[in-house]
Design a protein around this nucleic acid. Sequence first.
DNA 1: TTAGTTGCAAATCGTTTGCATAATT
DNA 2: AATTATGCAAACGATTTGCAACTAA
Lengths: 158, 158
Amino acid sequence: MRAFGRSAYGTGRVSRQRVSIALVVDASPDRAFSAEDLAALVRLDDPGIGLATVYRALAAMESSGFIEPVGERNGAVVYARCVDAGHHHHVVCTCCGMVEDAECPVGGTSAGANGFRITGHRLVLYGICPSCQRAAPEPGDEPGRGRFRVRPASRRAG
Amino acid sequence: MRAFGRSAYGTGRVSRQRVSIALVVDASPDRAFSAEDLAALVRLDDPGIGLATVYRALAAMESSGFIEPVGERNGAVVYARCVDAGHHHHVVCTCCGMVEDAECPVGGTSAGANGFRITGHRLVLYGICPSCQRAAPEPGDEPGRGRFRVRPASRRAG
DNA sequence: TTAGTTGCAAATCGTTTGCATAATT
DNA sequence: AATTATGCAAACGATTTGCAACTAA
């Protein structure tokens, strides 16, 4: 197997399954997705793909920088495709899960206050996308349309 | 039961257990801790405290802004005490788990690019604290001292 | 060949919950 | 007295892992 997939996984072999998975992820650059979401989509083409395979691919894509975890939905981690090449972040619609790359507003801090040597950071912006804003009656209310609510990662239900 | 604890939990009743828990958290403002860590510390004074109680207290303290999840350790979420009152973030030593409050470097973005109405963000800075830097032979190597490795939240082992 | 990948099913294990009891307000 | 918190133990459920078969390189 060749071509696409190489870039998504960085290193390692590129199996038929990994190509399918990478293609689906590549085709959904503006939507946060969970392992189950991804599996469901991939199964449209390859019904026999196993969840474990998806999880393993997810881990590989994350460490290669092809995707990044951006929150959770019902206790499951949701990821976003990293469209931009370099260092960047994501804005996630907490209502529908829409995602867009965002520039990194964090600067200078790499100097490190209090003697810390800063090695990195994780930032995710949350908001309401244009589409969901339109659907929301009261600006300020959490729109009720989305079936993909994303929440800042940390714990399960509430 | 009264006094301390009120501020930590925002609303709700303040039981003996919740006071003990809040006291321990308050006494560890510079260390990331997991539910198990916290339970172990609290049990020094109150051996009978249940893990579920700690988890419930953790949830309450998080929603009241007394603590914030800052990563994970062996698949368990680790929290940091929010020393500062207002909006701020944390710098976490990925080696030993030491934590310090950090100012928010994110500005203006509240305007929202691409039409998003930004409602919030989550930022955690990672680095090596002065103490661990001293313990690290090669500047650049991940020090090997810490027994509390913290990793950016997302998934379990690797 | 040879090492990395897959699918399946079982195992993990941090976290959540139901319930009867105890304690706060 | 009314309501909320606690402890225990069982339940959850997303994610991980062992393993034999398979396959990209």
